[in-house]
């Protein structure tokens, strides 16, 4: 998805993991994914550069669809769709 599309995507759950470093964002994503339905989009906010590389790998393992990330001022918004 393009940055524009990602910015306009309907988000079912937003996980703010900016207050925690690796592997905190992944743990928070794991906990939150159980609270949304299939095909819902979740965004993970992380200030940790590594998270935007880790989340696609996590999605690949868990079978979720990784949509992309948007860089904000000092953090990243990473999008994925639950499968």
């Amino acid at each position: 998805m393009t940055t524009e599309e990602l910015k306009n995507v309907a988000v079912a759950k937003s996980v703010d993991a900016r207050g925690t470093a690796c592997p905190g964002p992944l743990l928070e994503a794991k906990k939150a994914i159980g609270t949304i339905g299939v095909n819902d989009v979740m965004e993970v906010l992380s200030a940790d550069e590594g998270t935007k590389v880790d989340i696609p790998k996590w999605c690949n393992k868990q079978g979720h669809e990784y949509l992309g990330f948007v860089e904000e001022n000092g953090y990243f918004k990473i999008y994925l769709k639950k499968q």
Binding site: P23, L26, A29, K61
Partner: peptide, 11 residues
């Protein structure tokens, strides 16, 4: 512990 937690996050 970090590697263990990352693995656990991956189920």
């Amino acid at each position: 512990m970090i590697i263990s937690l990352a693995a656990a996050a991956m189920d």
